[in-house]
Design a binder for these strands. Structure first.
Lengths: 216, 216
DNA sequence: CTGGATCCCTCACGATACTG
DNA sequence: CAGTATCGTGAGGGATCCAG
């Protein structure tokens, strides 16, 4: 690969030669929610230099993790989308995200939330139906974090996470950077509301349900 | 971390800041089988510069992925061992190894097998009890690849992988670099024996069982 | 002999400017 | 919008050296 390989005949070494370069896994994370354009990726990864983004996209295309596709119709646009092989990394990324979330400290002042990182956080922290108390189903939440809005629904035990506002949600959850502490169980839902780090619109008791449904 | 972070409040970003640096995950892989000394790690990672190994060990200790421990008794020795937190990466590494194994091409001439990469390959490719045909249980194999010898046992559905030879194994499997193709199902066990890429000592039919028990 | 530290060189990455 | 071009910096590669 770009830098000299690891010299081992080993699946893990091979994986790292493909997706171990800086930024690669974050690009893949952002593509998990669907095809994106160069500029979309740039926005989702505010600190990536454009030449590095170019280089990664080229390498990941060569290794069949993603494809470059040209939209033919009205506005001719280039999009990048994961191949089936690339999409197989979904579970690995969710697990790695859960692992890293456990050692998240207080956010630095220059760190930001992005839509894709929030969507991944919700998908990765979803407890399925094996949680202690079964949540009422269906349920829909709208999550607003520092201007980013995503929708989270649970229906028949199936989780759905999409960008944008939710139509008539059961609960609207608005927060600055109090979300990690809530998902990690470092503060209780009631504490979060009392301290003002989380504000809700709707029945506040639903935040308990939310916190037990989504928990790292 | 060492290089400037990714600037995102995100579990995956955090994980990559901790273990995303070059060589880090391979060091962790080698420590999954137990504590190791500096020199052991060097041998398992033939291409790693010693200063990089030093730096990674220091960083991974600061992030609580591993601990440095000094063996007090007879020979005063320094060993590095994973913390519980570090060991939580086991499943992630197995999954990533399976993913990468799918795009392993023919080995380059300067690429080598190592004991830890072999042990991980066997653990990652173990199909448990959900394989089509239930293998006879217990079963023990001795695997010899380019001078490296490991033992693989299956008992009560539990997999055991240890270094060194096996006492009275059901089957001894000896191979050069024909192993990946066998585990990936690119060649059948009988083809592998006929072509000479795999040699067995014991009942050759047991290689079919082996190949269905261990399959990426 | 283990467990590193030090030096030098190269190239990947980071930042920014620029172009079809 | 979708990149390419340029250039400075620092992490990684490789060899050597040193203390306990």
């Amino acid at each position: 690969m770009s830098r000299r390989g690891y010299g081992q005949i080993c699946g893990l070494s091979r994986a790292l030669e493909i997706v171990g370069e800086r930024w690669a896994l974050l690009i893949i994370r952002d593509l998990l929610s669907g095809p994106k354009r160069f500029t979309d990726l740039r926005q989702g990864l505010p600190r990536i230099p454009t030449n590095v983004l170019s280089a990664r996209l080229k390498e990941l295309e060569e290794t069949a993790v993603l494809q470059r596709r040209i939209l033919p119709r009205p506005a001719t646009a280039v999009v990048y989308e994961l191949t089936d092989y690339g999409r197989e990394l979904d579970d690995v990324l969710l697990a790695l995200g859960r692992w890293g979330a456990q050692s998240m400290g207080d956010p630095e002042v220059d760190e930001v939330y992005t839509r894709e990182s929030l969507m991944m956080a919700m998908r990765g922290s979803y407890q399925g139906n094996d949680g202690a108390q079964a949540p009422r189903d269906p349920r829909s939440y709208e999550l607003r974090v520092t201007g980013i809005v995503i929708s989270v629904t649970v229906q028949d035990g199936q989780l759905g996470v999409t960008e944008g506002p939710q139509l008539d949600p059961d609960l609207v959850i608005e927060t600055g950077n109090g979300l990690p502490a809530l998902l990690l169980g470092q503060v209780s839902p009631s504490q979060a509301i009392e301290s003002g780090s989380v504000r809700v619109t709707g029945n506040p008791e639903l935040l308990d349900e939310f916190a037990s449904t989504f928990r790292v």
